[in-house]
Amino acid sequence: MALQSLDIKARSATTTESPSVRKTTRVAKLIDISKCIGCKACEAACMEWNDLRDVVGVNKGEFDSPRDLSDQSWTVMRFYEEEPNGQFEWLIRKDGCLHCEDPGCLAACPAPGAIVQYANGLVDFHEEHCIGCGYCITGCPFDIPRISKKDSKAYKCTLCSDRVAVGLEPACIKACPTGALVFGSKEDMIDHADERVADLKGRGFENAGLYDPAGVGGTHVMYVLQHADRPQLYGLPIDPIISPLVSLWKGVTKPIAMLLLGLTVLGSFFHYIHVGPNETDEDEEENEAAS
């Protein structure tokens, strides 16, 4: 949906500047995994605010429910049973869109305005412009967007762009009972994360740190990890970037290919003007016979 109170910083399949005169605070959500108890209140709040109801799934002997993100589940808790330091740890990560500063989905999307990035940093899908091609999935380094089986449109966490636009915090933040989820300006969230990391280091988590991957320009959903040196323990990519295949496809290839196609048409026309048509003298045969 169009949010009049928010300017747009980037718009999919758009080569000119987006409306961007207003100044907005860059916001971020901070997920402190060390404080998460896996209660799934955030999942429930997300469904409640966004009017989503996933189908009842199947229990596979794990706590993961729903099992995966879907058009109806924009956030899911992922439970990892790990022994990072020889001691059992239950790592619970709230998965969902990370709202990259440099979004791969937006770069890959061919439909103008189907994906926008607001001035405050949120990346939002405008499903009414979505054509269902799935290129956003191709572009995403975090495997987040899901194509609905119902309407073939792509869905993901909006970071409650509608709530944030009018000064409210996202629904998941409001529901979190432990303070594992906090929301504010990106600067404040980094400051808050620094305090949390210092606290965790004091408690023996030497490698605690902030997950705000630089390869995608940083993200507007960040994690405090007890083991930031091993994000793969939490199912997170180590140094996420937009795949070079996608960058090549959506980067230099596009303008160069269009230029070459144009030049070939122009070159053909100029060849005609320069050399002229290749005509057959259809009376040639008789002439030849005579000579």
């Binding site: 091609c133 495997d143 194509i147 295949l245 290919a257």
Partner: peptide, 25 residues
């Protein structure tokens, strides 16, 4: 490989990425 919604979901993402590039070129 990139045909939505029928076939693309069954292929690994790296193959899909390779396919979009191959298709364009």
């Amino acid at each position: 490989v990139i045909w939505q919604p029928y076939f693309a979901p069954v292929f690994p993402i790296t193959l899909v990425r390779l396919a979009v590039l191959t298709h364009a070129i």
